[in-house]
Amino acid sequence: MATAGDEFAIETQSEVVGARAGSLLMRPVEVVAAILLVLIVGLLLAGVFTRYVLHMPVVWIDEAASISFLWFAMLGSAIAIDRNEHLRLTVFINMFPARWRGLIETLATLLAITALAALLMPAVDYVREESWVTSAALKIPVSYRVSAIVVGIVLMLVVALAHVWRTAARQEIVVSVVIIAALVGLGFLMSPVLMGLGYFNILIFLVGVAAFCLVLGVPIAFCFAVGTIGFLAFTTHVPMIVMIGRMDEGMS
């Protein structure tokens, strides 16, 4: 029996509303992700054994595990998009009239797609920059590691676009695109005013915009991505590549 608190709970992987079986297209990606998971566990166990049992630490193990984890995280994100298993808040969606829910679901997915599209070229530029850097232990270009971000973004874009095209009504897609285009255009028009607001923009974008996306059922990770992208694009002159760098650091 459901309780009052249940409807406000964030969905877990096994309880996601609308979760679906993975597509055949993503089967090879799932295999690679599974291999990476086993590899990461093996590397970390080997690192612990050599460091604390043999007292002969292998310096490249941590670096190899970091590379593997970044690839694992990005491939896993694409798999979660494919299965519709990213964490999101659905309590507000259920409050909307049934006739609006299809449009809201489409708008939420296209907002996530917009965030991914905005990050794609900065991610490519980041890989180019990192190709000049050599890793300390393995002596390989760091671009081998950060290429995972580009591959993950591309996979997520392909999977999300394919899902929208298969499931959403064309009218819902058009209306959602118009809404997003209008919001982006408004952001650029208001940019001079927003830049004068200073730290108040943090409240607008990282709280207000993120909360708006939560209400629409946008996956939580993409809610904050949309807010951060809007903050950087409309209120600062900071290049978007900085966000990719922070993603890399966070996952590494």
Rank of each mutant, 00 (worst) to 15 (best):
E15R: 09
T50R: 13
F224L: 11
F69N: 06
F96Q: 02
F92W: 11
V142R: 14
V154G: 01
A21D: 14
M195D: 04
L111S: 06
E129S: 10
Q13E: 08
H237I: 01
I173K: 00
D248W: 15
W60E: 02
H55Q: 11
L216Y: 07
M240C: 01
A4Q: 12
A112T: 08
V175I: 05
L44Y: 11
G187D: 06
I35T: 07
L186I: 07
V184A: 07
I81M: 05
S191T: 06
A118C: 06
L54I: 10
M243Q: 10
I220Y: 08
L70Y: 14
M121E: 05
V177K: 01
V177N: 00
R27Q: 05
L189W: 15
V154Q: 00
S131C: 05
V178F: 02
A211W: 15
A33H: 14
V154Y: 02
A115K: 11
V53N: 15
A78I: 00
T106N: 02
E15W: 05
G196N: 07
I113M: 02
L39N: 10
S176Q: 02
G245I: 05
T167M: 03
P239Y: 10
L157M: 00
V174A: 02
M156A: 04
A117N: 12
F224V: 13
L89T: 04
I67T: 07
F205P: 10
F96G: 01
L87F: 12
F234D: 04
T3N: 11
L110M: 07
L110V: 05
V159Y: 02
L70A: 06
T109W: 10
T167V: 10
T50A: 11
I113N: 01
A19C: 02
A123Y: 10
L116A: 13
V38C: 08
W60K: 05
A168K: 01
E129G: 15
I67D: 03
P122G: 01
I202V: 14
L70H: 12
E105F: 07
L157E: 00
V58E: 06
F231K: 09
A137H: 11
L189V: 11
A225W: 15
C213E: 02
V154E: 00
L75R: 04
G198Q: 13
A34N: 12
R246Q: 13
H86I: 04
P219E: 00
V58T: 11
E172F: 12
I153G: 00
E105W: 06
Y52Q: 08
A137F: 12
V184C: 05
R51V: 06
S143L: 04
M243E: 05
I40V: 12
G47I: 02
I140D: 03
L186R: 14
I204F: 14
E7L: 12
S68H: 10
V215Q: 04
T109H: 07
A221G: 13
I153A: 01
L103H: 15
A182P: 10
A9Y: 09
L107D: 00
A225M: 14
G250T: 05
W60I: 03
I220L: 13
V226F: 12
G185D: 01
S14T: 10
A108Y: 11
A108C: 08
L197A: 03
A148M: 02
W132V: 13
I149N: 01
R170T: 06
L116C: 12
A123I: 04
